[in-house]
Design a protein around this nucleic acid. Structure first.
Length: 209
DNA sequence: AACATGATAAACT
DNA sequence: GTTTATCATGTTC
């Protein structure tokens, strides 16, 4: 079931205040249905967010900022909510997170998947694919590649002009949303079991069922 | 040495 | 179609 959104429709850009909450699991759930837009090199691409994960900084063993760890990489998460945290994973994947909470509280939401809405041909080109299929934008590394997001955007504010998030009024009832353990964080012990991953049950644009 | 992954191939059902 | 194994890749600590 594809979201019905015209190519030219615009939504309300979420401002910094939206991202200042410390309730990062709630924010992760709220971001489902929001529209992530990049405008790079004069070209625009957009997806509707379908899968997210919350990382609760200091108290979360799965977070890079567990125990207030502060390094060159994690410093970005201590910025005020509303900017991008982009880092390189496994040497080749640029993973995009939304920094959350006020300055000094290193919470973040990993955006794991989305439904393609705009700039489909450019997304295909960036992914070196020739037809639209799930793997275009399902999975955090694939999503970033399709949207042109790299570590060059680390610490970039989500107010535009390069990258922002819109509310186009798309809403989902709780019964259409699944919550479960996060992916690929087994090293975090029992914290890996926290139900901090959220996704749309009915969407095909999700990395794993 | 570890790491918030993805592509591919081979061996299943 | 699905599961499973393997590996590419480079920054961080």
């Amino acid at each position: 079931m594809d979201a019905e959104i015209s190519k030219t429709e615009q939504g309300l850009r979420l401002g910094e205040a939206y991202f200042l909450t410390e309730d990062v699991p709630r924010l992760a759930r709220e971001l489902l249905g929001k529209v992530l837009v990049t405008f790079l090199g004069g070209e625009r691409t957009a997806v509707m967010i379908t899968e997210t994960e919350a990382y609760e900084g200091p108290v979360d063993r799965a977070s890079h900022a567990y125990g207030h760890r502060r390094t060159r990489r994690t410093g970005t998460m201590y910025l005020p909510g509303g900017c991008a945290y982009v880092y390189l994973c496994y040497g080749m994947h640029h993973l995009f997170n939304v920094v959350s909470a006020p300055a000094g509280v290193p919470h973040a939401v990993l955006i794991r998947a989305g439904e393609p809405l705009e700039g489909l041909s450019l997304m295909l080109k960036r992914r070196k694919m020739d037809k639209i299929e799930k793997r275009l934008t399902a999975g955090p590394g694939s999503l970033s590649r399709a949207l042109g997001i790299t570590t060059a955007l680390d610490a970039e504010k989500l107010g535009g002009p390069k990258i922002w998030i819109e509310d186009r009024g798309i809403r989902f009832p709780d019964k259409e949303i699944a919550a479960g353990p996060r992916i690929g964080v087994d090293y975090a012990g029992e914290h890996a079991l926290w139900p901090y991953r959220f996704y749309l049950k009915k969407s095909k644009w999700v990395s794993k069922r």
